[in-house]
Amino acid sequence: MRIDPWALIVAVAVVTAAIKAAGPVALGGRALPPPAAGVLALLAPALLAALVVTGVASRDGEWHLGTEAAGVAAGGLVAWRGGTILVAVVVAAGTTAGLRALT
């Protein structure tokens, strides 16, 4: 069975819009309780971290630490030490490219 890519894109867009609309509809204009708002605020960074880890540290369903992991670690170190995001991205890309050139 072959799925049309454009149909899939439209379906994902519709489901995303429905999910985004479900919150305001369910709450009816009321504010979230503070504990729920705190958890909700932490969901996006946690999801981003999970996507980065699985994208960098896995290959073909197996754990694999390669040049990408070293680049992310170098960029994370720069960001942790107070560097700007632009500098962190450049350091991460440079580290990854340098290690790939050596291997």
Rank of each mutant, 00 (worst) to 15 (best):
M1C: 05
R2V: 06
D4G: 01
P5N: 05
W6R: 10
W6Q: 07
W6S: 08
A7N: 04
A7P: 01
L8G: 04
L8A: 13
V10C: 00
V12Q: 07
A13E: 06
A13I: 03
V14T: 05
V15A: 15
V15T: 06
V15L: 13
T16N: 04
A17S: 05
A17Y: 09
A18I: 10
A18H: 05
I19A: 11
K20R: 13
A21G: 09
A21H: 14
A22G: 07
A22M: 12
G23L: 14
G23T: 11
P24H: 02
P24Y: 04
V25F: 09
A26V: 14
G28Y: 02
G28T: 03
G28R: 07
G28V: 01
G29K: 03
R30K: 08
R30Q: 04
A31C: 02
A31K: 08
A31P: 04
L32V: 00
P33E: 01
P33C: 02
P35D: 00
A37C: 03
A37P: 09
G38N: 11
G38R: 14
L40W: 11
L40R: 11
A41Q: 06
L42V: 10
L43D: 10
A44W: 13
A46H: 01
A46W: 07
A46P: 03
L48M: 08
A49E: 01
A49T: 03
L51P: 00
V52D: 00
V53P: 01
T54I: 02
T54C: 04
G55N: 10
G55C: 15
V56F: 13
A57V: 13
A57P: 08
A57R: 03
R59E: 07
D60Y: 13
D60T: 12
D60G: 12
E62A: 15
E62G: 10
W63N: 03
L65T: 04
G66E: 04
T67V: 11
E68K: 13
E68H: 15
A69L: 14
A69V: 06
A70M: 13
A70Q: 03
A70E: 01
A70K: 01
V72L: 09
V72F: 09
A73F: 15
A74H: 06
A74N: 05
L77E: 10
L77W: 14
A79T: 08
A79F: 12
A79W: 12
R81C: 14
R81L: 15
G82N: 06
G82C: 15
G83Y: 00
T84S: 15
I85D: 09
L86G: 13
L86R: 00
V87P: 01
V87G: 01
V89P: 08
V90W: 05
V91M: 09
A92H: 10
A92E: 00
T95G: 05
T96C: 05
T96M: 03
A97H: 00
L99Q: 06
R100N: 07
A101L: 15
L102M: 12
L102H: 09
T103R: 15
